[in-house]
């Protein structure tokens, strides 16, 4: 029992400064003004916000940095920004814009040194590594790391990679199950348990949560934070409903 509350984190996917939500990283639906969304989630009790930038262009990324700055002024909870961060300069730009933490994904696989560089330059708490994993029976843990929004297989075992990013100075792992993302089937709890047991840093569960029980299962599988997107954007569940449910099950939440 650490005393820390389990965090509920709405994730907003951005493309060219607009909020979108992908279903299994493909068909994208626009979900409205990000600042309004962010404020709504803060009022509902969000403990943190995660933004993922899926813009494919330099122009789109610049728009993203401006959006981060605008949202930062409007809300008073931590913001993590990920997506397309390839260099320390990319990370610095987002932190200067008002992100509190940055998350690296493909870049960490391609250039693992970036993890330690971000941790030493901006602090361990800033260095989040996002791991997208999919089932693959050929891997020792049964899960393989994918990059480039799930399009590219890396041949890396997800649990081994999680250990490596932790040893390189990551302050947190954002663990997304590609198989579950957008499916409403709940978190991939086996994967979550394997990774949470293997590392001494917080693990954020992501991908598939759609019902109250899914959040409890994620917590029970070792997640320090529980992330979801579509169910919040579509208004299917509110953060306060989830927190009340967890509190009823004796899970420490910030109410």
């Amino acid at each position: 029992m650490s005393g820390l509350a389990v965090r509920i984190i709405p994730c907003l996917d951005f493309k060219d400064g607009r909020v979108v939500k992908g279903v299994q990283f493909e068909h994208l639906v626009d979900s409205g003004d990000p600042l309004e969304r962010a404020r709504l989630y803060e009022e509902q009790g969000a403990d943190e916000l995660t933004f993922l930038d899926i813009s494919a262009t330099v122009e789109g990324r610049k728009t993203m940095a401006k959006e981060v700055a605008r949202i930062r002024r409007g809300i008073a909870i931590p913001i993590t920004v990920g997506g397309g961060i390839a260099t320390i300069d990319d990370a610095a730009r987002l932190l200067d814009s008002g992100a509190d933490r940055v998350s690296v994904n493909s870049a960490a696989v391609r250039t693992p040194k970036i993890i330690g560089d971000i941790a030493s330059q901006f602090g361990v708490q800033c260095a989040v590594v996002a791991i997208d994993a999919a089932q693959n029976g050929a891997m020792p843990s049964g899960y393989e790391v994918k990059i480039a929004a799930g399009a590219v297989s890396t041949g890396l075992d997800a649990v081994a990679w999680a250990k490596e990013v932790a040893s390189r100075g990551a302050g947190e792992i954002l663990l997304t199950s590609i198989d579950r993302d957008g499916t409403s089937l709940g978190y991939e709890c086996t994967l979550l348990r394997l990774v949470a047991r293997a590392v001494g840093i917080p693990v954020v569960a992501s991908g598939g949560a759609s019902r109250l029980e899914h959040f409890l299962e994620g917590y029970q599988s070792g997640a320090s934070a529980l992330l979801a997107a579509g169910i919040f954007h579509r208004g299917e569940l509110s953060i306060s409903e989830i927190k009340n449910y967890l509190a009823e099950h004796n899970v420490e939440v910030r109410l």
């Binding site: 650490s2 005393g3 820390l4 509350a5 361990v124 302050g171 917080p202």
Partner: peptide, 11 residues
Amino acid sequence: GLALPQLGWNR
């Protein structure tokens, strides 16, 4: 003996 940094909401 808990994970460091302490990251999140506490009382």
